[in-house]
């Protein structure tokens, strides 16, 4: 693993020697170690099947690792009650699944599961935070566009007041305009709330646009870490170069002739 231009900061997650193997001997994560920096947008990038979603799901214990440890603010997550951990570490899935009922009911789901209450002014604040019109609060959540639903699903996680937000390719199903709105929301969460964000992405352009730090994954390992600029310009693992080249060629395609 080569490293360069490391982003300094307090560690939120310290991942050590993490291994996830499935029945039948398939290894999804292969002794992976990584640090998630507090108050930054930490990107995980790599081809599909490299294990980035699995890594994300280990961080809020939706998956039990076979081996290795994860520490959150210095405490091993196996020592934290799992439901408390999930309230502290919010997660947004690839395509948002809205629960039956209004947006307000969706926003109340997390707090009420944890035995807490959330009032309407706070709900409106949350919608504003994700650039949604607060008057939508009583709208049927099943009738939202993909981009709106994804923003509600971010707001729904924020209702638990998490310290960390995990996002699993949150924009892969969205059009460019909706993608930009989500990206702006993430920047806002980092800048205004100082939130630690872990963003799984398949797009080098997106990582370059918003991430402070990035880790390139391949075959269940992290092969490169550093700032997005470093991934694009430094001396690398051959796969990093391929990734960068892919990025450059797609950039060329986007340029008007």
């Amino acid at each position: 693993m080569t490293q360069g231009h490391q982003v300094e900061g307090k560690a939120t997650f310290e991942i050590c020697d993490l291994t996830v193997s499935l029945g039948g001997g398939a290894v999804v994560l292969d002794g992976l170690s990584h640090t998630i920096v507090a108050g930054k947008i930490n990107a995980l990038i790599g081809p599909s099947g490299c294990g980035k979603s699995t890594l994300l799901r280990c961080l809020n214990k939706l998956i039990e690792p076979t081996k290795g440890s994860i520490r959150l603010d210095g405490v091993d997550i196996t020592d934290i009650d799992v439901l408390t951990l999930r309230a502290r570490v919010g997660m947004v899935m690839q395509s948002a699944t809205m629960f039956a009922g209004s947006i307000a009911e969706n926003l109340a789901f997390g707090p009420s599961s944890l035995g807490q209450e959330i009032d309407r002014p706070r709900m409106k604040e949350l919608l504003e935070l994700v650039s949604l019109d607060p008057s939508l609060l009583d709208k049927d959540a099943q009738k939202l566009s993909g981009g709106q639903a994804q923003r509600v699903s971010i707001a729904r996680s924020l209702a638990n007041k998490p310290e960390v937000l995990l996002l699993d390719e949150p924009t892969s199903a969205l059009d460019p305009a909706a993608t930009r709105t989500i990206e702006a929301t993430l920047i806002r969460l980092r800048d205004e709330l100082g939130m630690t964000i872990v963003l799984v992405s398949h797009s080098m352009e997106q990582v370059e646009r918003i991430a402070d730090t990035s880790a390139l994954m391949l075959d269940g390992k992290i092969i490169e870490t550093g700032t997005p600029e470093h991934l694009l310009t430094g001396v690398h693992h051959h796969w990093t170069e391929q990734f960068a080249k892919g990025k450059l060629s797609s950039q060329k395609e986007n340029q008007p002739n």
Binding site: N60, L62, L83, T84, R86, A87, G90, M91, M93, S95, A96, T97, F99, A100, F109, G110, S113, L114, S153, R156, S157, N160
Partner: peptide
């Protein structure tokens, strides 16, 4: 699966997440 894991990720215990 995705609805249930969304609920679990919000801190719901499995019985609540799979209620429906």
């Amino acid at each position: 699966r995705s609805a249930i894991e969304s609920a679990l990720a919000l801190g719901a215990p499995s019985r609540v997440a799979a209620q429906v």
